[in-house]
């Protein structure tokens, strides 16, 4: 009984940790927290990385530890798990809307499985502009300011914007 109550408290504490690079989404919104549990008095948090080289992961681990200590946890262990593999498909509709309102276009559709390498045979995703909703947008680069974002351009706003890549 006490274990269930503690879990809820700890889940809530972890749920308040924001992604340092996308500070409108919590690490739970993103789906990178896979489990929070207690093992012999230690709070264990299973975390799955977004991108292999994402430098925010270490900051996120430190923030999770600090949030749990504030919520009264003693020993905390952050455990990295690799399966199932993180996908942007796990980001909820509500979180997607917050992302858009913040100015970052949310992932379009679900993460593609296969990839076409010949550029002219490839179909780009439709990514509505987060500011005006235009669908006449175009990709400028598949790589952006962080590992998870691409650079897009809206001809109607005449502004570039960031897109959280479907992966």
């Amino acid at each position: 009984m006490s274990l269930v109550r503690a879990r809820a408290e700890y889940w809530q504490a972890v749920g308040e940790v924001l992604d340092p690079e996308v500070p409108v989404l919590s690490v739970v919104d993103l789906g990178i927290v896979r489990d929070v549990r207690e093992e012999d008095g230690t709070v264990v948090v299973d975390v799955t990385p977004t991108y292999s080289g994402c430098p925010a992961m270490r900051v996120i681990e430190d923030d999770i530890r600090a949030a749990l200590h504030r919520a009264g946890a003693g020993e905390v262990r952050v455990n990295t798990v690799f399966q199932p593999v993180w996908t942007t498909d796990w980001i909820s509709a509500d979180a997607r809307e917050r992302l858009r309102a913040y100015g970052i276009a949310p992932p379009s559709g679900s993460a593609a499985v296969a990839t076409e390498l010949v550029p002219l045979l490839r179909r780009a995703p439709v990514v509505p502009c987060p500011a005006c909703g235009s669908t006449r947008t175009e990709q400028r680069s598949e790589f952006g300011s962080t590992a998870c974002k691409a650079i897009w351009y809206c001809p109607d706003c005449r502004q570039p914007f960031e897109y959280l890549k479907a992966i």
Partner: peptide, 19 residues
């Protein structure tokens, strides 16, 4: 297997970009 599945997603981006 887990590391490979993650790396695969990233490598697809790399392959598209270089193609």
């Amino acid at each position: 297997a887990g590391i490979a599945a993650k790396a695969l997603k990233e490598t697809r981006y790399h392959a598209r970009h270089s193609a």
